[in-house]
Design a protein around this nucleic acid. Structure first.
Lengths: 354, 354
DNA sequence: CTGAAAGCGCTTACAG
DNA sequence: CTGAAAGCGCTTACAG
């Protein structure tokens, strides 16, 4: 494999000149530059990333931490991962995966070995044990998730609080009062998964304000639990609305509603776009906006890495109140997707309101 | 951040001695080693991965190439990615993501910049444009997929051919004759996605041999197409069995079968475990075995990287016929998971047969 | 505008 | 058994 020395020799210049055209940090006479670029092309030369990393202390790698706990709705993670990878690539960065249950020590190792220039952390918890590590790190981090205290790092997420209120608003507008709320399992709430408790808080606050009669059910994600719980609710005619924030609910719901003849039940859910896309969801949902979250996360990171702003301009939806040491908290506005007729063969998405 | 020099100073030895205990490639007197290890602990030292990569030409990084075409059933990809990452970590490697549509040039760049020690390639096609690049690469690759010609690289996949035959066998055993086969969209077949055409070939050959009356439908993965196609089949009473190899089919099927009162229809599908886990699948399926595929893929790669065999012994299910230059083709045996009563509240998995 | 030299943090023959 | 030296492939002051 060609090195910078080979290029220099072929172009008849010094290695530093080659380096200058490579980095673009120094002016090189057009004629020289031309010769160098030509040589690069001929030799099919690419900078050795390890060597460059050693010389610059920039790896052009960003670490993606997701420690898939057993419970997580694994499928939807792909959307985040792909969007993160693509956005990172747009900025010249690559993604390195950090999985494994003991992510704290994994992160420490990653940081100590100087393998990444920054971190994106998914599945954030309140009092996340990884937060102190991230704060002390020499490189910037961004959370996808919104703990109360995100000092020292940037954070982005759907505004789950607002989403909870939005859903209750819809129930209220439909003049329904008694509503069942199926949310994530107990342990997810106890762990403090930020999306779980933020949506729940929003929903419960909204219900209280609108004087709705809300029953909250924390439900496991296995088939048995879901079916049992959903059946119980559907068979109780006093429920006028069913709100879910638990991805395992969606797939079985349409079947159950048909079987139990509860097409009258107002159903509203928070769900990942791929769930809505792949399944037959004849009810309204709020998109979790994984792609927007992912792209914003990377943009926030780039901002820290490249000083202020990126080559592609200001990240969308990030307001400019960034003091030198002030970290961002970006909340994405929830949007309701309304879906038309129950059990029709079409399943068109209508406009959005928020 | 501490360097090897700091450690050497603190331990009162030379840098090469520290390096020796780090790599473990040279004997170091126990007392010295102790001092060095102590110093490492105190300084919280970790080898700088860029520097090590430069010195050894080993990055301890493996590249994961998946160029998510629009069509792919994205959710199931996570299972592969996580399993690959975990298995890689077991061997001390990390995963670097290579996404993007133009994966050929991305791969070339990755290889030229010496960023990875090996590659895992998903979504492999017959005549995959990436294959020539992989063959010429200085580092080994393994495919998850099974093109006719996989010379120069290792390959692993579920035995989709056998799976196709197994399914037809089941239909035959149920004494059914007329069977509808819903498979992936036309363009996936035209692209030559190996799983698509291998299963199809197996199914069609099996049907011919068993004298079944098979109608094959290539079907898009959007809701509308799926519903239309599935409804058409279900409403045709002449069909006795429905075989699907198209992930978009599963989610809607149970609802449709109830609505159309076709609980008599024999349904068999090939599907990812998470699909079976998350949905209400009251019919028999063949697991695509993503985790087994992923782990085997990494093991094959490790074998190339570390000479013959890994520290953890021979990879499971890999027979030992590896001549020095002979590349492996590992086919995982398909297993049928039978599921009990139609539309009961339970959904227990019964034993497997193959 | 270009080049010689030092240095990034490690490993690895090679002496001793 | 340990250490001094060279080298991996780049970048970056610093001279010229």
């Amino acid at each position: 494999m060609a090195t910078i020395g080979d290029v220099a020799r072929l172009a008849g210049v010094s290695r530093s000149t080659v380096s200058s055209v490579l980095t673009g940090r120094k002016f090189v006479a057009p004629a020289t530059r031309e010769r160098v670029e030509d040589a690069i092309g001929r030799l099919n030369f690419t900078v050795n990333s390890g060597a460059r990393a050693l010389a610059t202390s920039r790896t052009m790698n960003i670490g993606l931490v997701f420690s898939f706990r057993q419970s997580m709705y694994v499928p939807s993670a792909t959307t985040y991962v792909v969007a993160l990878a693509e956005e990172a690539r747009l900025h010249g960065y690559r993604l390195t995966l950090v999985t494994g249950s003991d992510s704290v020590s994994e992160i420490k190792r990653l940081l100590a070995s100087k393998s990444v220039d920054g971190l994106v952390v998914m599945e954030v918890l309140e009092d996340d044990p990884r937060l102190p590590v991230l704060r002390d790190a020499a490189v910037p981090s961004v959370l996808i998730g919104m703990p109360e205290d995100s000092d020292g790092v940037d954070a982005v997420d759907l505004d789950y609080l607002a989403a909870g209120r939005l859903v209750m608003d819809q129930v209220h507008q439909a003049r329904h009062r008694r509503v069942a709320f199926v949310t994530w399992p107990t342990y997810l709430h106890e762990m403090g998964a930020t999306y779980a408790h933020r949506f729940r808080t929003g929903a419960e606050e909204g219900a209280r304000e609108l004087n709705l009669d809300l029953s909250t059910f924390l439900c496991d994600v296995d088939q048995t639990s879901i079916l049992e719980r959903v059946t119980g609710i559907i068979r109780d005619p006093s429920y006028e609305a069913l709100v879910f924030h638990n991805d395992a609910v969606a797939p079985v719901l349409s079947t159950m509603l048909v079987r139990e003849h509860r097409e009258d039940l107002q159903v509203l859910g928070l769900c990942p776009p791929e769930l809505a896309r792949e399944h037959w969801l004849p009810f309204d949902t709020i998109d979790t906006q994984p792609e927007e979250s992912a792209r914003t996360a990377v943009k926030l990171l780039m901002r820290r890495l490249n000083g202020t702003g990126t080559e592609t301009g200001e990240p969308d939806g990030i307001d400019g109140r960034d003091g030198a040491d002030c970290h961002e908290r970006v909340l994405l506005t929830p949007r309701l997707t309304t879906r038309s007729p129950w059990f029709g063969l079409e399943n068109r998405d209508a406009g959005s309101s928020d």
